[in-house]
Structures are given as C-alpha cells and as structure tokens.
Amino acid sequence: MRQTPAIGLLLLSAFLYGQDGHGPTGPVVKMAPAPLVTVRQGKAATVPLSFRVSSGYHINSNRPKSEFLIPTILKIDAITDIVIGKTTYPDGRDMSFAFAPDEKLNVYTGDFEVDVLVRPLHTVQVGKYVVRGILKYQACDNAACYPPKQLPVSFDVRIAKAPPAPRKNPAQSPHAHR
C-alpha cells in the first residue's frame, strides 16, 4: 500500500503531461439533448437548443463588441421541405476579464439557449426528421484563447398532419332559422 501515493503521483503527472499546453481536452461547449418538437404541416414552431459552456471558459456572444472577435453562430443545414427560419440568440453578458479589466466583452458563460424557427411545407410527409447543423464558437479563459471550433448540432422534428381545412358553409339566409 506504501507505493500507492507514488503511483498516483506518477499517473497524475501523465495526466497533466497530456494536457500540457494544449488547452481544453474536450469540447468547451456541449449541447443538451434537444426536445422533440411536434409541428403541423404548414405551421411554424420554435426549437429551443440548450448549450453549456464549461466552467472557467467563455465564448463570444452572437454580437461581440469588437470586429476582431469571432461571434457564436449556429448554422443549420438546409433540409428538403422544412424551412429553417430565424435563429434567435440570447443577449450575452457584459463581462470583464483579468486579461483586460477595463474592457467589457459580450460573452456567453454557463448555460445559454438558441432558438430555431422551423416551418415544414404543407406538402411535407408526416414523420420524424433529423435536422443537423454546427455551432461555431471561439472560447477563451482568463489567460488564453483557443482556436475556433465547430460543435455538431442535431435535433428531431416530428411533422404532424395538418388539421382538415374548415368546411366553407354556403351563405345562409337571415330568415333560415325563423
């Protein structure tokens, strides 16, 4: 048992060596499983996509304050018969960091949600569709920045049959119900 601390130290060193100067070992941003949204043919629905920025990191918001900063952007692949509408990004938080205490950056930290409007055509077949895309982001921490990354994004949309069109009744005579 006396060797155990030494082995632990050795392995910890190996672990740290692997991380030496290469930044985060995994993606800084992760996506939570998206809810299955059901939308009728020809109607629109909003799909909320939830993301989490790892603790200690920040990414630029969709509207960073400098032209040199890389905004967070969601790009959704075109899909036949489903129109991808407006993408709504949350407002970022104005924050100062140790590397620039006098400057406010507009960033996302922790959890944030991006909403995507989907509108299937009237003609689309009912069923479940997978929509794919990428979230482009660029992360930093208090002392360093990391090259831009692309997080694969996907969510399911269930297309339901449109309700039958209301029947048009013929105009009635005002005397019909006497």
Binding site: L11, A14, F15, G18
Partner: peptide, 20 residues
C-alpha cells in the same frame, strides 16, 4: 487514470511533437 492520461497524451501529440 492511466488510461485517461495515455489517451489524452496520444490525442494531443498526434499532430506532432509536444511543445515541451
């Protein structure tokens, strides 16, 4: 721990020599 350390080291060094 050994698996994680080796895995990360291999992944990081796949592109070339380690800076250190």
């Amino acid at each position: 721990m050994l698996f994680a350390g080796i895995h990360i080291a291999r992944k990081n060094h796949a592109g070339g020599v380690a800076p250190g």
